[in-house]
Nucleic acid binder design. Structure first.
Length: 203
DNA sequence: TAGGTGATCTTG
DNA sequence: AAGATCACCTAT
């Protein structure tokens, strides 16, 4: 069964006020997409936390509300997708309760099923470690784009499945990538990845 | 290490 | 209205 309802993470799980905690918990979870008639399944290996309160790297810092970021204020459990550098569609999971604009950026995944589909979408002739190692690369591989803006993660297009947690001694945390402009907040250790996993975007 | 790409935000 | 900036990636 492709869409295993019993295994799907429920809405309330995402409505947690500790976005860094959720970013860590998402490591090792399974992300599934069923887009354009193609199924993919992959393991989350790298994430970053962004907090709407007290984090200048976050699009919704200081209660800033724009057309782009407005879904971040909705209850957790939906997708926040935006275009970066004119080319890349970046996939974030909205967390926390309504009005608290937190999100977790998915930075890298390890392909499990539908690898041919992923290669086709990337114009790769065969699988390699760069297929999904980067936030813009994994969305292209999985078929995620702006049309999924605000989509529920409890639905049957994009969803996350439960798995046992990665042990804390297997998680590396570093500063986030590409947020130097955020001053002090660029020093927050809110990037997480699975230790020695070959599919992370960089070490 | 430089350049492409386009939405968003600021007036640098 | 124009210009800078940007949670990136690829190819020199």
């Amino acid at each position: 069964m492709i869409n295993n309802v019993e295994n799907k993470i429920e809405m309330f799980w995402y409505q947690n006020s500790d976005v860094a905690f959720i970013a860590k918990q998402l490591l090792g979870k399974i992300i599934c997409t069923n887009i354009s008639g193609k199924f993919t399944k992959s393991l989350i290996v790298e994430t970053e936390a962004y907090s709407g309160t007290n984090d200048k790297a976050c699009h919704a810092n200081n209660q800033k509300l724009t057309k782009r970021n407005k879904v971040m204020y909705r209850p957790g459990g939906i997708a926040y997708i935006y275009l970066c550098y004119g080319i890349h569609h970046l996939f974030n999971i909205v967390t926390n309760v309504e009005g608290k604009a937190d999100a977790v950026l998915i930075r890298a995944v390890q392909p499990l099923e539908g690898i041919d589909t992923m290669c086709n979408r990337r114009n790769f002739t065969k699988n390699n470690y760069r297929l999904t190692a980067g936030p813009g690369l994994l969305t292209k591989s999985l078929g995620i784009n702006l049309s999924h803006y605000g989509a529920s993660l409890i639905g049957n297009i994009i969803w996350i499945e439960k798995k046992e947690n990665i042990k804390s001694d297997q998680i590396i945390s570093t500063t986030r990538i590409g947020v130097d402009y955020a001053g002090d907040d660029s020093l927050k250790p809110w990037r997480y990845f699975i230790k020695e996993n070959k599919w992370v975007s960089r070490n």
